[in-house]
Design a protein around this nucleic acid. Sequence first.
DNA 1: GCAAGGTC
Length: 616
Amino acid sequence: MGRILCVAEKPSIAKAVAGHLSGGAIRNVRNTGNKYIKNYDFTYRFPRPWGECNVTMTSVVGHTISWDFADGFRKWKDCPPSALFEAATKQFVSPEHKDVAANISSEARNAQALYIWTDCDREGEYIGTEVMDLAKKTNPRIEVKRAKFSNIERAHILHAAQNPGELDECQASAVRARIELDLRIGAAFTRWQTMLLQTVRGLDEQVVSYGSCQFPTLGFVVDRYKKVKNFIPEPFWSIKVLHKRDNINVNFYWDRSSLYDRMAVMIMYERCLAAKFAKVVSVVKKPTSKWKPLPLTTVELQKQGSRFLGLSSQLVMTIAEKLYTQGFISYPRTETDQFDKGMDLQTLVGKQTQSPAWGQFAQDLMAGGFSQPKNGTHNDKAHPPIHPVVYVSPDKLNADERRVYEFVVRRFLACCSKDARGETTTVKLQYGEEGFHTSGLVVLERNYLEVYVYDKWSSSQELPVFTPGETFQPSEATMTEGKTSPPGFLTEPELIALMDANGIGTDATMAEHIAKIIERKYVFARPTGRGGGEFSPSNLGIALVEGYDNIGFDMSLSKPFLRKEMEEKMKKICEGSMTRLDVVNSSIEQYREMFVKASQCSDILKACAQRYLTQA
DNA sequence: GCAAGGTC
């Protein structure tokens, strides 16, 4: 009987796939040198030419191979930073992954074929090539196949095993290009600017790093800070009508909202007063609904975690990973906001019926309240939306874990529920020449709101009865003056939304980039009391952004365009319209020019840092 | 002493 080695990107996928392929009959579970990784032995009938085979299913834990500069370039004093644009690099098994690599190499030794089961995304394709290289070390002639799967439902996994494809070299090349560019550009600029700014007071010991993701992240914070600081309030005027009926004060809002011209508002206001009576033009009742949320993605978890739970995005992710490794929730790094049609959601709902807090709601869903979740527009083809896997009683979790778990569960139950339904009543008034309106809301069916306690939906205004055509003398009409107010500092959910929209980082790394610019002392996080906190740049952070902007580049280092361009080039490698070398060479040339310009204008950057860092 | 990307 032949032997086939299967390798997934992470232990959880190895376990799930082994379970499906073996039909539950795993012969042997072997420990490996790595405490997270198990080798699962079983038999499975693969398609021709292999047929019935002894199978070992195992995994890596993400990347196994590291990249660094070769000897003679690694230490900071080894070479001028500009040499890093073309310095020799080397790849090697990272020390903490020696046991992972050894397991692959030894398991591959007497296998006919290697099936790659890494995630079906770009990084997964590259990790697949790492696995292939490790296997070929001990078995150069091993045949390599790629299983293509987008979820871990049983039928889908069996189909993937029966219909293997090939590793996509283009996607792997794109990642290889990114790795090289991030390393060269990041290290060159980091060493250069750190050493340049070392002499500026207060920076002696500090690493002043540059990275294609951390700088745009910093840029977002500085941008907002400047908007706040440079904001000039503008006065505006408005007309407010208040009418008391049935002991309810009803505010009517001006259809024009407000105007910046005081005299004009004054004239309109006086015409209203002169008319004395207001007339009800229309009373319209309309059914309305508040939509239940979409299935939960990583970005959304981080944003809402910050907004509702008051936890930083990084802490939310750390907790979510822990909940995942304990088997409480599904994989927490996903872009997918649609549940696969075939997924058995009702069973997952059923597991939550034992909760004292939301069990009754889950039971009501089981008893007919269930409604298929809405589909969002994202699908990473690798992981389902984040959802609870089992019920966990609160005493098994600490306070923060409990809140994150609760959020995941409530969100999931909300997705499986129905939209909230209500009715709005809109009253329109004519008063003098001017139109006014108000509206009230009656919630008829709370539905998902019962369990999703984070959403509020209530009437801002309770309405007494108004009849079309009636006239009345308003209790009060006033001309009000206001001032436009500045935006707030950037909050964590806003920053994550900006990074997401501009392609800065991935769902798995955005929180790290934010933590990084705090660690580097480019920005400070201030607690707001409303959770999450808000960011403002340090003097160093402002100096870096301004310093480079003063030098003046075609594309700002602190804006997302450069990163976007790299992303575009990676796509071109994937489509085959550019090669890895095309991309690496052109990008290196681009950054080398910027580096030369920065070196020539280093006084500008230094002066800027001096100005900001030596002031009180 | 550098990056960003996986995963734990």
